[in-house]
Design a protein around this nucleic acid. Sequence first.
DNA 1: TATTGTTATACTCTATAACTATA
DNA 2: TATAGTTATAGAGTATAACAATA
Lengths: 164, 164
Amino acid sequence: MLTETKTETLADPLDDVLGYQLRRAMLVTMTALTDSYEELDLKVSEAIILRFVGANPGCNQSAIGRALGVKRTNMVPIVAGLEARSLLIRPPADGRSNALFLTEAGKELLKHIQSAGDAIEQHFFGDIAPDTRNTLLELCRNVRAKAEGTFGLPGGSVNAITNP
Amino acid sequence: MLTETKTETLADPLDDVLGYQLRRAMLVTMTALTDSYEELDLKVSEAIILRFVGANPGCNQSAIGRALGVKRTNMVPIVAGLEARSLLIRPPADGRSNALFLTEAGKELLKHIQSAGDAIEQHFFGDIAPDTRNTLLELCRNVRAKAEGTFGLPGGSVNAITNP
DNA sequence: TATTGTTATACTCTATAACTATA
DNA sequence: TATAGTTATAGAGTATAACAATA
C-alpha cells in the first residue's frame, strides 16, 4: 500500500499564456541582475542610468527619463544620489537643464556594470541560437510598437524600467 | 539651408541586450493588462489569483502564494479583499487553513478575466508562428530553471507576479 | 517542529499635482 | 506656451519580524 504523498502541485491556468510566462522569466533575470548590482552598491535603475549617461555624455536627465520611461519627477532622487556619490556631475547646460557626465569614478564603475550585465545576459541567454535571438529582439520591437495600437496606451507610462 | 531639427534620440546602450528588451516588452503587455482589468475593477494580482482559485478549487492561499511567488503575508489583504467583494469564500479546511472557492459572482467574473486576458495575448502575441511560440515558452522554462543555477537565487523570491 | 493565517511595518518604484525658472 | 528641475505626497508591490493556533 502506497503512502499518500501530498503532491502540492497546483494546476497553473497560465501555463500556456506567453505574456505571463515571459513575465515570470523576466522576473528571474531581473532578480539576478538586482543581486549582481547589489555587489556594486547599485540599484538596477542606477546602473541603467549610468550606462545611458556613459553612452550619451552631456544629455540631461529628462531625456534619459523619456528614453527609459521613467518620469522626470522620479529621475530627481536617482540622479541626485549618483551625483552625491560622485559618479556623475551635472554642470548647467543652459539656464534650466543640466548636462550629465560620468566622473572618472563613474566611468570606472561603468566597466563593472557592463561586465555584470554581460554575465547575466550570458548566463540566461547565452545558449540561444543567433537567429532565435534575432527573432526575439524583433518580437520585442513589435510588442512595443503595438503599445501605440489598439489599446491606446500613453507613451510615457508604457515602459518604466526600474522595478524588478 | 536646413533648419536644424533637434533630434532628441539618445544612443541606447541596451539596444541589443535581450534581457532588457524583453523586460521593456513585458512592461508594455503588463500595462495593457492593468488597463484592461481596471475595467473589471481588478488589479492584475487579483485577477491572477481568481484564475488560480478557479483552476484549483479548495486550495489555500499559501499554496497560491507559493505558486505565484507571492509571500503568504502579502496574500492576506488580497484574498481578504476578494472575499469582502464576495468573489470567493474561504471556509475552514482544517483548523489552520481555509479552502478557497469562487462564488457564482466570482465564476462569472472569471469569464471576463479570461476574455480580457485572451484579448491581450492575442493582440501582442497572436501573430507569432506556433513553432516560434513553442520556442519562446521553452526559453521561459529554461530561464526559470536557471534561476536555481549559478546565481543561487532563493527559490521563494525569484518570481513574484503582481506588479507591472 | 513546521505550517497557516495574521498584524505591523518599512522599503522601493511609480504616479499626480503643483511650484519655480528658463527657452 | 512648453520644457527642466524640483518638492511633496499617495499608491501599489514586496520584504522582514513577530505572534497565535494548529498539524
